[in-house]
Amino acid sequence: MDEKNKPWLLLLPALLVIVFLFLGGILFCIVQSLNYQPIIGKTTIDLEAYRSIFTERTFLVSLVYSFYIAFGATFLSIVTAIIIAMALRKTFIGKSIAVFTFQFPIPIPHIVSGVAILMLFTQSGFISRIFNMMGIAESPSSFPELVFDPMGVGIILALLWKFMPFIGVSVLALLQTSGLVYEEQATSLGANSWQRFRYVLLPIMKPAIMSTSILTFAYGFGAYELPFLLGGVYPKTLAIVAFERYNNVDLTYRPESMAMSIVITIFVVSLILLYRKMATQNS
């Protein structure tokens, strides 16, 4: 077996899946988004679907909303992940249980997080009832709207539950290895704890934070399940609007739904390319 070709042969089945299913799927989506409908005899393509959605208020609001959800969840996750990783980095009694707890949510399906938020934070949910018992909230409507609300609080909380450990575990690993020794060095040079954090630890954490938050952002931006479970009537995330339109009995909406999905895809791919460019620039 030719050594030069061996890796390609080994990769062949995987590449077939990627090319035919993944790239193929995207390709067919693009084609359909370009209004190519041979079924009704239309063999030309045009950008009508894109023009339509980009002038439509619902779509634009969803675009901003999806961005907001993804950004909000990612940002909060980064902040909390850093706080907890900083707290866990040194040795202490009970550390292994703490670290186990920290990484616990990682393999748990997102939907479970959504169900929990649903049961905890709705106006008649568990937390609301505790507030009621403590005398803070008299009735369900006195409890703030955190689920099915236009600010997407419930969605962000559910995403936070999953994102935070994902980012945090990477950061913690870094802090425990190179972090600690650099900290000692910085201390011996006269840096106080804030200076150590800002000038030494934070820069060291940066690559881990960047690589994991790109992933969480991408997931948040294109999320369907959690916004569907916990979201309100308006606004809706891009994926929900796209899927609704896809299921519309009126097939003339199909191209628009395809176009929306492609917008999501292009956005995420651009983000990844941007990140990789920044990463190679830095090193």
Binding site: V181, Y182, E184, A186, T187, S188, A191, Y199, P203
Partner: peptide, 17 residues
Amino acid sequence: EKREVSMVFQKPLLFPH
């Protein structure tokens, strides 16, 4: 950090950034 005692370790530990 206030003792004014600086330390050089076995590894140079130059801040990479």
